[in-house]
């Protein structure tokens, strides 16, 4: 069995207007030392799902069901106290905006050492020494001095490094990075991603990286899970999905990535419309109201029937949730010329 195995995960929030199905039947697997990229628009259920793995949802507001097997133990069957003991130790999380994710009133060192002392019975001095060590490891210059600084005295990139130090201080076997580079400069983004990759090799941890940035996915992810409206719509190896996507939503994501590498004629095409309401999701395939290819499916299947997450036409491990019978042909004929015209020309000549 895989190191992390999530099966049919559902996170539902009951509200006065009805049940918000933020995550509705999500399954995936992840081995140690591998990286899973979860990609999707805001509100597609990425963060909600990963918070569920960490057990961060309050039982009073969220109903979490399914299975989250970490090293054979179903985290959802643990008591609150058992889960608390694992949180930050076996599973750690790095959050999106390190300025708001760190407490403004406590020094960086205090907050990092705190994460260590929760799970290790050591003196404050020893924990601080450990914090300095971690700050050094993530590349903070003069860590023995900077450890007493407050978060507002750090630059954005340094804050995110400090967050990473905090997340990794207990050597977790699973690290969840929720949009770790979104709030950072482009140059700093690359450094942070490199650091995460180095540390992953060093600690042999499994990493889930949540992002809406396909560039991050291309750089980091061994496997990719594309989410839409709380469900996986495409799941497979990173290379497969970036080169041969089979689901119109993934095509849309690819088309909306700016290509700054060369003087191509590629156009930036946003996905029309807005992410659907999770309170009243569309019938059938949740993407059908925005899908430019729904007319290629005979009948009104897209409007009435939710497609299964099933292997497409390429490999058994490349799953897609779409009624299209020949997605690869449509992709090559209609989508690829739009997003990478030079690529198409090359293959024809």
């Amino acid at each position: 069995m895989a190191f992390l195995s999530v099966r049919d995960l559902k996170v539902h929030f009951p509200t006065v207007d009805g049940v918000v199905k933020a995550t509705d039947g999500l399954s995936f697997e992840l081995e140690k030392g591998r990286t899973l990229g979860i990609v999707g628009e805001s509100g597609s259920g990425k963060s909600v799902s990963s918070s569920a793995i960490l057990g961060l949802h309050r039982k009073t507001s969220a109903k979490v069901s399914g299975e989250i097997l970490l090293d054979g133990t179903d985290l959802l069957t643990l008591s609150d106290e058992q889960m608390r003991r694992r949180r930050g130790k076996d599973v750690a999380m790095i959050f999106q905006d390190p300025l708001s994710a760190m407490h403004p009133y406590y020094s960086v060192g205090n907050q990092i050492a705190e994460a260590y002392r929760v799970h290790h019975d050591v003196s404050k001095r020893a924990a601080k020494a450990r914090a300095v060590e971690m700050l050094d490891r993530v590349g903070i210059p003069q860590p023995d001095r900077r450890v007493d600084d407050y978060p507002h005295q750090f630059s954005g990139g340094m804050r995110q490094r400090a967050m990473i130090a905090m997340g990794l201080i207990n050597n977790p076997s699973l690290l969840i990075a929720d949009e770790p580079t979104t709030a950072l400069d482009v140059t700093v983004q690359a450094q942070i991603l490199d650091l995460l990759q180095d540390l992953q090799k060093e600690f042999e941890s499994a990493v889930i990286i949540i992002t809406h940035d396909l560039g991050v996915i291309a750089e980091m992810a061994d496997e990719v899970l594309v989410m839409y409206a709380g469900r996986a719509v495409e799941y497979g190896s990173g290379n497969e999905i970036l080169t041969h996507p089979e689901m119109p939503y993934t095509w849309g994501l690819l088309s909306s990535v700016p290509d700054v590498s060369g003087d191509t004629d590629a156009r930036l095409i946003p996905i029309p419309g807005n992410p659907p309401s999770l309170l009243n999701p569309p019938s059938g395939c949740a993407f059908h109201p925005r899908c430019p290819h729904r007319d290629k499916v005979p009948g009104d299947l897209c409007f009435t029937t939710l497609p299964e997450l099933a292997p497409g036409t390429r490999t058994e491990t490349h799953l897609k949730r779409c009624h299209l019978t020949d997605p690869d042909a449509v992709y090559e004929r209609e989508v690829l010329p739009e997003i990478a015209p030079d690529l198409v020309e090359e293959s024809h000549s």
Partner: peptide
């Protein structure tokens, strides 16, 4: 606040999260 979520994600006990992180703010 995000930092209260961070405190919970560290595995801090609820009382500690409340007193050290929430109340201080």
């Amino acid at each position: 606040e995000d930092y209260v979520r961070t405190a919970r994600a560290k595995g801090l006990r609820q009382n500690k999260v409340l007193v050290k992180h929430t109340m201080r703010a």
